[in-house]
Simulated scan of single mutants.
Amino acid sequence: MTTVTMTVNGREVSGEAEPRMLLAHFLREGQRLTGTHLGCDTSQCGACVVHVDGRAVKSCTMLAVEAEGAEVRTIEGMANQDGSLSVIQQAFQDHHGLQCGFCTAGMVMSAAALLADNPKPDEREIREYLEGNICRCTGYHNIVKAIMAASGQDVSAMAAE
């Protein structure tokens, strides 16, 4: 076992990890941050996306020991300081960008990374960026609409689906 220390959602945490332990398991089991979901363990679904040093990472493909000393942000760290939903989270709620919710954390984390890199993406750019995230419920239309709304774009002309 190895002691791993990182900053998670602004708080320094340490925990024991086997060298082969995935970051997703370290966060879920060791830190009880269960918003990071495991859907495939093969980097296909995107439900486990977190930010590591500001970059979107599929935490099922990164070892916990690789995050030693890193700044990690999970869905639990996305809310505003007062506990209210972030702009992206609120847009997902307002525009029905979720159904069962299993993929939502990864979608929100991916959306935040996209908007950090491209503050006003168009529909094509959003769809291309989300290729690594799978949603089995929504058909993606309302997810795209929510991300466009979170970026401050007018989505009133986009039909609801």
Results as ranks from 00 to 15, higher is better:
V155F: 00
D53N: 15
N133W: 02
K58N: 09
Q44C: 08
A112M: 09
V57N: 00
S86R: 10
A150M: 11
H141Q: 15
F92W: 01
G83V: 11
L27R: 08
T5E: 12
S156Y: 06
H95A: 10
V144K: 00
M1E: 10
E125D: 13
T61M: 12
T3K: 14
R73L: 12
G101R: 11
I75N: 04
Y140D: 12
G77I: 12
N133F: 07
C60Y: 06
T34F: 04
V65I: 15
T74K: 06
A70L: 12
T34S: 12
S156I: 05
E16S: 14
T104L: 09
E18W: 04
D53H: 03
Q90R: 15
A157E: 15
A116M: 06
G35W: 07
E123C: 05
L27D: 10
N142E: 13
G152K: 02
H51A: 04
D117E: 15
A79Y: 10
I126D: 06
D41L: 01
I126Q: 04
C48W: 00
Q31K: 13
R28M: 14
G35Q: 11
H95Q: 15
A159T: 12
L63M: 11
Q90S: 13
G10R: 12
Q44W: 00
T3Q: 14
E66A: 15
D41M: 04
F92A: 12
F102E: 07
D117A: 15
V72T: 09
R73M: 09
L114P: 05
V50Y: 01
R136Q: 13
I134F: 13
R11W: 03
Y129N: 10
E76C: 13
M109T: 12
R136C: 13
D53F: 06
K58M: 05
L130D: 03
T36F: 02
T7N: 05
Q31R: 12
N133E: 09
C60S: 13
N142M: 11
S59C: 07
Q89D: 07
A91H: 03
V87M: 08
R11E: 14
D117M: 11
Q31G: 10
S14C: 05
Q99C: 07
E123I: 08
M21R: 08
I126M: 02
R136G: 04
E76T: 15
R55C: 03
V72D: 02
S59E: 01
I143Y: 12
V50Q: 01
F26I: 07
